[in-house]
Design a protein around this nucleic acid. Structure first.
Lengths: 255, 255
DNA sequence: TAGTGGTCTAGACCACTGT
DNA sequence: CAGTGGTCTAGACCACTAT
């Protein structure tokens, strides 16, 4: 069942991408759209809200909405899963488990993931044949058996876990910064020690809010960037100071 | 005029932060909230949607909403403006213009900002007394006079421009990656050449979609991170491949 | 099967923009 | 001032979850 407002949003989005609503132009009024699509104003508003959330359209009270850009937006899955992101972008990609072991959870990991044992996995991923990403993932004990059952060259862990045990990654918290490559990073990525890496740390949970994994992913500089569009009044990405000196991290990420 | 749904959202948010609705617990049903606040269900839904967008609350059809976290979310202004962000976080901060000059726009800048002349400004910003950020900003010609009129140690350019000429930064597009410090970066930030920096490139526009500035901001590693919470079905931050080899950048950022 | 969130309608009033 | 988007209501039906 696809919602009416989704269909309208799709149609408007296509109009933007195809140039029927060029960047900088005004969108038709809500009343006009409601008539065109034979829908109530509320439904049209819901459709337009989707485009606003995607950053394609800007909105202010009293004035017509304007088209801000024509870049397509990606899904949660594409942010969460390297494989799904790379596939959607038409990239050649691969992955390989480099090391994997069960070990007792540290105090912080236990608080973050629950349980007393975790599974630690080190993966190297390639894009267009080049190594670009080192993933150090710590899985909660309860998913460890399912993860261990995966092949070492599993393309998409996210998809495989869904198919194997119906596990859905639903929520994520991400922290993005830059770090110098360590010895292991450097060896795996083929860069010099100390060279810049883009780091994405994250904790992912199920629909119920149950933590599944915590990961430290490091991209070779120049291979990948994060992109965001925002507007006054709607903006989920935030800066965070990293406490240069004062009392240490109460933050969830401390590895 | 503060909207009803904002007040309800504020109240619910405070309940989450104060522990009345602890992380992992269920939120009251929409019907219950509607009765409690004496509002229609639609209004309550709008309030809860705010919390969902902030990542504080998770939502799925058929089940009660659950509380995901208690971190406060920040505003567009706080992402856009170093001063407003630092002030909201209670940090000590400062800034200083290091260099500034008008020059002809490159072809890319002309396409991005409009006009044939731009104003280029190099600023160094400090956090807790330490230099942490080098800002290289290119302003569109039409705002150049207003920017040049600012004092060299202006704390908040965003606020000053609003007060001086009523300019509002309304929309932004950001690209986040890691780079090695160049000679100038290294000298200004007090780090070694080649050490990792977190880079945020952005283009900002007015309400009308008119481009105002394009900037390349570089943070010393370990000083600042970007943070995001997301969920299946709502997610504005995306990865972007940086084209290791194939034909060069059609992307808007190419400086 | 009852409860809950998701979708949709029809209409009202208000705040703001543009002319 | 007319037009437009923002807020709010009251009620209906549907899809999904939990028991």
């Amino acid at each position: 069942m696809v919602a009416r407002y989704e269909l309208i949003a799709d149609d408007l989005r296509e109009g933007i991408l195809s140039g029927a609503h060029p960047v900088g132009s005004q969108l038709p009024s809500e009343a006009e759209l409601a008539e065109r699509y034979g829908a109530a104003r509320g439904t049209v508003r819901q459709a337009v809200a989707v485009l606003v959330a995607e950053g394609l359209v800007g909105s202010r009270q009293g004035a017509r909405r304007i088209v801000l850009g024509a870049a397509r937006s990606q899904s949660f899955a594409e942010l969460h899963s390297f494989a799904q992101w790379a596939r959607a972008g038409g990239h050649r990609f691969g992955g390989q488990v480099v090391g994997q072991r069960r070990r007792p959870a540290s105090a912080a990991e236990s608080a973050r993931l629950g349980g007393e044992e975790v599974l630690e996995v080190l993966r190297l991923r390639t894009l267009e044949g080049e190594p670009v990403l080192v993933e150090r993932t710590v899985y909660a004990g309860w998913v460890a058996p399912a993860v261990e059952a995966l092949p070492a060259d599993c393309e998409s862990v996210t998809e495989a876990l869904y198919e194997a045990v119906g596990l859905v990654f639903a929520y994520g918290e991400h922290l993005i910064d830059a770090v110098a490559a360590g010895a292991q990073d450097a060896r795996l990525l083929g860069v010099r020690r100390g060279s810049p890496l883009l780091r994405q740390r994250r904790v992912t949970t199920t629909h119920e809010g149950r933590p599944v994994e915590s990961s430290d992913d490091r991209y070779r500089a120049g291979s990948v960037a994060f992109s965001i569009r925002n507007s006054i009044g709607a903006n989920p990405l935030v800066r965070q100071a990293l406490d240069l000196r004062s009392a240490a991290g109460e933050h969830m990420f401390d590895s």
